[in-house]
Design a protein around this nucleic acid. Structure first.
Lengths: 239, 239
DNA sequence: ATTATGCATTGATGTAAGTCAAATTGATAG
DNA sequence: CTATCAATTTGACTTACATCAATGCATAAT
């Protein structure tokens, strides 16, 4: 089964992540800063995905997780009658592909929203390492559990305003954690895609953003977002 | 740190699960049938929770996962303005408590919907064992990933009929896997609770169940459910 | 520049589901 | 057996958001 000894695998991962500025986000508990110094295997594990291209497709075999180095992705599932349901947006430093673990093939399709760069991590190897490294195993489960919890943050019992406020705050939070501005960013998804994700019509998204502008909560032009009053946005999110 | 050697811990778990008819559901990949024969530590790890009692509470410290032996639970979070949001229902053979992994304290409160019996599993010990047993680690992640995926099965882009149809099918499916009838079962939750979970008013739940009755899709009286036409229900679920 | 093409915005109208209210049923206690 | 209380059902009315439609802007292609 495991032709590669796990210490060798571990070395490869160390090399791959050593110089990545995002390593603390992908696998924060797993590998100490000291462990990650060399980089020669990095390029081998790196992948460029152009805008609109698939990273993986629903029903295709599951082998890898992907850590986003740069860019962004959406995942969606295609329903019985052919309509898409967007299930998530993914930003730099975030892991994606977990949806394939169980039946062994992906439950969703992942598409790049802009030209993006990802690191490919063989899931089996990652698990092997996780069983060796204190905290990594737990961290992977934490990612999954948090993702599940957050799903209810943007949820069925919230109205359109609250959903959009929460969506913006979620993006803001995530950009901030990655060292980007928490109040000024470009959306890489359309109104249509936001609406689909939140269960709203794109017109509703547009109207509510207009309302937020009128209220002085934010400025926006097309996909440029500038949040002016995070506190007010939080109040709106709560209702 | 680990005063107990992991082989000792493993023995305890074996003993706890050896005679439980649900072991194949809780930890199917982890422990072979042969491994689980003795039972003397079982009672120690078993817990009875009466209807309406808490299994764990939001913001309380996270240490344990719970495997349901009998009964059922709901989990909910309390929003900023004090309203509840039900985040899940849990049936025999299912694990709950994962919500606490990340910040180290629970994100939701778990309440018994009827008198229930659960097994308490120390999460740290479970992880220790998972790193030893081929497949268990992966299985735990699979549970989490599936749960996340399923969240979109009952989702924002579906109307009231579809949500309720999907909810019933989900219950049916889960009862079936546990060896219970797939078409006849008692709901342990109120219309109010179903509505809260699905983002609908309890009146809407009531009305749509009435509609399903008229259509001959099911018979229901209070909380007794008898699904007559699973195929039709599936069609409704898809729209 | 000029036309195409897709996305965003804004307005007018319709509808699914929420809210409010009352009636019915069932469970529990006295 | 009757009273009480909660859950469910059903009806009348309201509303938030969807849908349909038209217009305004961008970016890209000619």
């Amino acid at each position: 089964m495991n032709s590669q000894p796990s210490s060798k695998i571990l070395d490869n991962i160390r090399q791959a992540c050593g110089t990545c500025s995002l390593n603390s986000l992908c696998l924060p508990m797993g590998l100490s800063h000291e462990e990650m110094l060399t980089l020669d295997q990095l390029v081998k594990r790196q992948l460029i995905v152009n805008k609109g291209e698939y990273l993986f497709r629903m029903e295709h075999h599951f082998d890898y997780l992907y850590a986003i180095r740069a860019g962004s992705f959406k995942t969606f599932l295609v329903s019985e009658k052919g309509t898409d349901q967007i299930t998530g947006f993914y930003l730099p430093g975030e892991l994606l592909g977990f949806d394939g673990i169980e039946p062994g093939h992906h439950q969703v399709t992942a598409v790049a929203l802009e030209t993006s760069s990802v690191c490919q991590l063989k899931f089996d190897e990652l698990l092997q390492i996780a069983s060796k490294i204190q905290g990594l195993q737990r961290h992977l489960m934490a990612i999954l559990s948090q993702r599940f919890n957050n799903q209810f943050t943007i949820s069925v019992n919230h109205n359109a305003e609250q959903r959009i406020a929460r969506f913006l705050l979620s993006l803001s939070e995530r950009f901030k954690r990655r060292g980007y501005s928490a109040d000024t960013f470009n959306l890489t998804m359309s109104r249509q895609e936001i609406g689909n994700y939140l269960g709203l019509a794109n017109e509703t998204v547009s109207r509510i953003l207009a309302k937020f502008r009128e209220q002085g909560i934010l400025e926006s032009h097309q996909r440029e977002m500038h949040l002016l009053d995070l506190r007010a946005l939080q109040m709106t999110a709560c209702g």
